[in-house]
Nucleic acid binder design. Structure first.
Lengths: 146, 146
DNA sequence: CTAACTGCAAACAGTTTGCAGAACT
DNA sequence: AGTTCTGCAAACTGTTTGCAGTTAG
């Protein structure tokens, strides 16, 4: 999903294109594949625009999340992290490995795990809306030489 | 893990057995398999003891968590939930299904998913320390009749 | 022009902490 | 007695909200 179509989506929602919104989206796209918390978004946004407040970021992110443009998750540190959805039409869900030493976050996708979840849901009579698999450990770098 | 051995563990740590600690542990054991947040622990504790404060519960829970006696996780509602570890020696990890409508939490365990995670870790050079799989959806009751 | 948006500061919710008194051993 | 623990209230942190002024369309 590129900036243009996100802005189009915003307009379609009867909302306005503001400098702040553009900047936030730019920052998220530039960091596609990363996972940013408020501070980080704030910091990076200031490169493009002097004064963007936390409130504005939260408000915009809420909209983006509700429209499936970004995905939010809560880290061990109780902060929320945001990540832009790379998906085209085929929504390719992915999960995360967190390195507890250096903080690196690695994405992965495993079809079999996704399928097993569907199986569990069937057995339990559960209708899956979403899921989140987080693995914590040490990445290659940290567990070898440090 | 029963109340007796938990209390023994506390003593071994050079700590004292207080009425509040006993009550908290009793409550957690009575609700083995459930997942309680602060309010719930507080409420259930008052059945046994008039005046237990939130601070005391947090402080004790921190100790219990650090000693692997209970497990904590953060719900979508940003509250922390606690659950006593049922494990004997063979630590049987389990994961959770959350009903977004009624709030019910169902546990499950799937050996294949655990194995696939190990496989992913191998491929990524990652050393797994812990993991968490949370599935959100509607439980049987809520998705049928309501 | 006017409805939506923003920054600010105050409000919130969950959790943590300092302190003086209470309780375990 | 001496140390650890507790309740209380105040402090903290991340997030949300009300408001008056600003801006996009």
């Amino acid at each position: 999903m590129d900036e243009k179509s996100i802005l189009a989506r915003i307009k379609a929602g009867g909302l306005k294109i503001t400098r702040q919104r553009e900047v936030i989206i730019t920052v998220l796209i530039e960091n596609k594949g990363n996972h940013l918390n408020l501070e980080q978004i704030l910091e990076k946004s200031h490169i493009y625009h002097d004064n963007i407040s936390a409130a504005t970021i939260y408000r915009n992110i809420t909209f983006l999340e509700q429209n499936g443009i970004i995905k939010k998750f809560t880290g061990h540190d109780k902060k929320s992290y945001y990540e832009i959805e790379a998906r085209g039409e085929a929504h390719k869900h992915h999960d995360h490995l967190f390195c507890v030493k250096c903080g690196e976050i690695i994405e992965f996708y495993n079809q079999q795990i996704e399928k097993l979840q569907q199986k569990i849901a069937r057995e339990t009579g559960f209708k899956i809306l979403d899921h989140k698999l987080e693995i914590y450990g040490e990445c290659r770098k940290c567990s070898s030489g440090e």
